[in-house]
Design a protein around this nucleic acid. Structure first.
Lengths: 240, 240
DNA sequence: TCGAAAAACTGATAATTATCAATTTATTTT
DNA sequence: AAAATAAATTGATAATTATCAGTTTTTCGA
């Protein structure tokens, strides 16, 4: 079932897929001139917050989490990027260190484009600049959306949103398998709540018939109800 | 007293001042060709979330809050912009509607640059694109910082950070008056906590000798201790 | 300057969410 | 496949934060 009309999914996704797809072939070729492709296993770190950036990454296949770890070791996931998305460009463009870390949630194939190539093409390609500007200004909208949800919505609503967003990310992965496959810790770190709290809310959702789960695999069975719980639907649903 | 070494203030401020300051005079002149300057009184709305953008705004004098209001009427302040900062460009660049609202926290003088002029200069000025790219990628770091604080830090720590950030904003305003002058509601909406909770934490800080207040004016008297409370200092201070 | 309205403050309580400790279930490794 | 390890789940409890109701103080306009 589609989210059209029941949840504003565009307000939750970055649009970095469009960056490489819509630039001239010549620019694209120059970007890929020294590109290297690497395989990452589940759990592997792609880059670490605070490190000096050396290039940008293109996710050819797989799912990656971007997160920050605070001084108490608690992790907050900022964004989950899937196949076709670009990561690591913020630090290059801001001339700062990586603001967050990235690691593979599942096995990934990721291409690396060196900083020098990226900057060289950027300086000569008006269209690449424009794509990046459009993409990052959209990111502002996504991030401010996130902030308002984190500060103002209940744990239940946040879990609902998290599941809706992840469902889209996993939909495009394996053709025969569209279940969300992610640890409870990652789920709770994405929703910004304690793991135990997340487990209990998942159970609630299961009892409501919103999802089924076996092991760590979660399949959404009633996306409409989930959208209602998220409070982004027109219908206002109150549980309990 | 300076924040150097005790709090990473750069990670909390956007850098849009540098955009207009560092572009060629010719580009600057073209941007300002049809610029209009307007006065806003305290509380006046500059633009509203969801509205179609018609241009960008340059704060010549004053302080502006950027915020989102959820369907229950609760407000979350995303950012506070002061003299010299630019606002409203995200919506123009993303070709979407305003992702948040902006209104004057104190009386302001704000210049308006029409969308057409901004886009025309942007398309012909590589340096303006570069400045915007650098600025927005830095914003990503600021916003993700905010997210991790909102989800992982206590109300007390968030109030401390809020006060440190506001102190910097107000420092540059009136020469003879560097007190923070903002309503308790705005403060609580910035920290993402209930107003009553904020009032109690302010009282605590007052008792600790961190600040003095008369009416709505707050003067920080011990910025070092505030930085320690914020948990961004090296020293780890535990209250209670 | 007075009076009304708004904002700030206080105390009590409720609701939500996190933490702790233990058990059960899954997953990985040998 | 069994053992070892890690992850998920559960129940009980604690901590934090929000809400409610009322009072006091401040602000602002007539």
């Amino acid at each position: 079932m589609s989210l059209a009309g029941i949840f504003p999914i565009d307000q939750w996704n970055f649009k970095s897929q469009s960056i490489l797809k819509s630039i001239p072939e010549e620019d694209h070729d120059r970007l890929c001139a020294n590109m290297t492709v690497e395989t990452y296993n589940k759990g592997d770190v792609i880059f670490k917050e605070g490190a000096v950036p050396s290039g940008i990454f293109f996710i050819q296949k797989g799912i990656v989490k971007k997160y920050k770890v605070d001084r108490d070791g608690r992790e907050q996931i900022m964004y989950v990027a899937g196949t076709g998305e670009l990561i690591g460009y913020h630090a290059i463009l801001s001339e700062e260190r990586y603001p967050d870390s990235a690691s593979a949630i599942e096995d990934c194939i990721i291409a690396f484009i060196p900083k020098e190539d990226f900057l060289e093409v950027l300086h000569s390609s008006v269209i690449l600049s424009q794509r990046l500007l459009k993409n990052m200004s959209h990111e502002y909208a996504v991030l401010t959306n996130n902030i308002s949800v984190f500060t103002q919505r209940t744990a239940r609503e946040r879990v609902a949103i998290t599941l809706i967003v992840l469902r889209e990310k996993y939909k495009n992965e394996e053709a025969n398998e569209d279940a969300i496959n992610i640890s409870r810790s990652d789920l709770s770190n994405m929703a910004g709540i304690a793991k135990e709290n997340l487990v209990r809310i998942l159970k609630e959702f299961k009892n409501l018939g919103v999802l089924v789960s076996e092991g760590r695999k979660i399949t959404i069975t009633n996306i409409k109800m989930l959208a209602e719980i998220s409070s982004y639907s027109n219908k206002t649903l109150k549980i309990r």
